[in-house]
Design a protein around this nucleic acid. Structure first.
Lengths: 113, 113
DNA sequence: TTTTCATATGAAACTAAATTCATATAGATT
DNA sequence: AATCTATATGAATTTAGTTTCATATGAAAA
């Protein structure tokens, strides 16, 4: 069965899920989220906490912001980022629970390649 | 501030979240999940439902299976896949809620590039 | 009013995940 | 046992997200 190279995928209506998860499928963004879970921070504080370069943080924050996973508030020249905990925290909890249910001995959530 | 090309990212302990979300940040996998939400299916049934080539489905199912997002049961030469609803369904619900809270007029969960 | 500090932005380069496609396996059917 | 049917697998390729890095913006301080 041959397929066209640019196949049209028929779940455009489910695009939201994809965009949302895309924002979480990245170790840096997860790092930022967990970092902000402990309290609001400006970009420099996130940089110091994660030891990651500034533009990387900014790029990651931009997409997290677009998805309303984080909020910003400007204060002079610094911008305070805060986590929108309503969605993310329960989501992380679900994964913790999932892992504890299904990965009794060792973690099943590992790279398998 | 210069950084090494292969920077060590300091959240290896949070790798599970990343692996888990990676499995969801893909329209095909989301399609499969939503398809299985409506009932257990074998690979051919998923193919027909989504109009997607067989090996693509199989590859996607392999990684979903490794994360225990789906389960398999063999029945003769066919394999029946089922959704592990305990984690995924509440997670999708959280996103629906998130979208309805934050995307009143149009969906905020869109590509912004 | 120039400099400095905090952060954002653009685009090329890099990288890793997804796709493709040929092929393998293995149960069922003849 | 040969064939068919259902699904899995491997590896090269493609693609899209991330990183990098140079630069822009803009607020505060000197």
């Amino acid at each position: 069965m041959k397929k066209k190279t640019h196949e049209v995928i028929p779940f455009m209506n489910h695009h939201s899920y994809n965009i949302f998860f895309m924002n979480l499928a990245n170790p840096l963004k997860i790092g930022i989220i967990l970092c902000l879970r402990d309290g609001n921070k400006n970009v420099s504080e996130i940089m110091n906490a994660l030891k990651v370069e500034q533009s990387k943080i900014s790029h990651a924050l931009t997409s997290l912001k677009h998805c309303k996973i984080v909020n910003v508030e400007q204060n002079g020249k610094e911008r305070i980022y805060s986590l929108n905990k309503d969605t993310i925290i329960p989501m992380l909890n679900l994964i913790d629970k999932h892992a504890s249910c299904h990965c009794k001995n060792k973690c099943c959530l590992k790279s398998w390649k």
